[in-house]
């Protein structure tokens, strides 16, 4: 069924914040079903890169392809190739995003949070959207909380709702921006479990994370970003057991010492 090579691909993605260059010519190609974990020291540009894929940050220059179709091409802070709005929207909907701070809509119940986008963006009938939302919430183990407001839930529960909310749009790629960094340690496990289940279900995932155990266990590929470049990439075993790059070595050393 796949009539494309890479589900998401970037070419020469750069990003400047004023004079500061946070991303330098990043090339990344991800195949369908692949789980990519991005690790690295803070300030390396991991989150910025992830947010650039979803266009929450406007890149300075570079190209982004979804399923080999051009989504965005910018040079010198200007979009150089126009994509038709309909295609652009359709391609954007292939990506779902989960944030560090959950960003659930506090004025809506759990069920309404999950239903909002399908009903308003995809115009799914409310009945059907409700059914699908309940299935998703069941999958993340929160079917009993459908009528609660997010403020009544723990951080881990909120993040699981956020994952269900992103999945409700049926994306083919899930982007996770440090999904467990804002959680109390004892709540991290439940969120990682949901992510593992997703990965096992064949979802393409790009995960920015500090959870080395998760990266090692679940990732097909681990990227180490430092100073706006991909310093090293490879299989988890390669990166964790036999790092080649000095930056990788020093980063892993500091992380492992901290633990």
């Amino acid at each position: 069924m796949k009539d494309y090579e890479y589900i998401i691909k970037t070419e020469g993605v750069s990003k400047h914040f004023g004079k500061l260059e946070v991303l330098k010519n990043i090339d990344l190609s991800v195949k369908k079903g692949e789980v990519v974990c991005i690790i690295g020291p803070s300030g390396a540009g991991k989150s910025t890169f992830l947010r650039s894929l979803n266009q929450l940050e406007k890149i300075t220059s570079g190209k982004i392809y979804i399923k080999d179709e051009l989504l965005l091409h910018r040079e010198h802070d200007k979009t150089v190739e126009k994509i038709s709005p309909d295609r652009h929207k359709a391609l954007m909907l292939e990506m779902g995003m989960v944030f560090q701070r959950f960003n659930l809509f506090p004025h809506l119940t759990v069920l309404e949070n999950v239903m909002l986008a399908p009903v308003n963006v995809k115009k799914v009938p409310a009945e059907q959207a409700k059914k699908e939302a309940e299935e998703l919430l069941d999958k993340v183990g929160l079917l009993s909380k459908v009528d609660e407001y997010p403020s009544k839930l723990s951080g881990g529960q909120q993040q699981r709702v956020a994952i269900a909310r992103a999945l409700a749009m049926k994306p083919e790629i899930m982007l996770f921006d440090e999904p467990t960094s804002a959680l109390d340690p004892e709540l991290v496990g439940e969120v990682l479990q949901v992510m593992k289940d997703l990965a096992n279900g064949g979802m393409t995932m790009i995960v920015v994370t500090h959870e080395m155990g998760f990266a090692r266990e679940v990732a097909d590929r681990v990227l180490l970003m430092a100073d706006g470049i991909i310093a090293e990439q490879g299989s988890p075993d390669q990166i964790f057991d036999n790092p080649q790059n000095d930056r990788t070595k020093s980063f892993l050393k500091s992380v492992l010492n901290a633990n």
Binding site: M97, F99, N103
Partner: peptide, 15 residues
């Protein structure tokens, strides 16, 4: 983050 979450879900500015 509310704005970002809504945009990531594909909601238009008006929505």
């Amino acid at each position: 983050g509310q704005n970002e979450a809504a945009r990531a879900l594909g909601l238009t500015y008006g929505q």
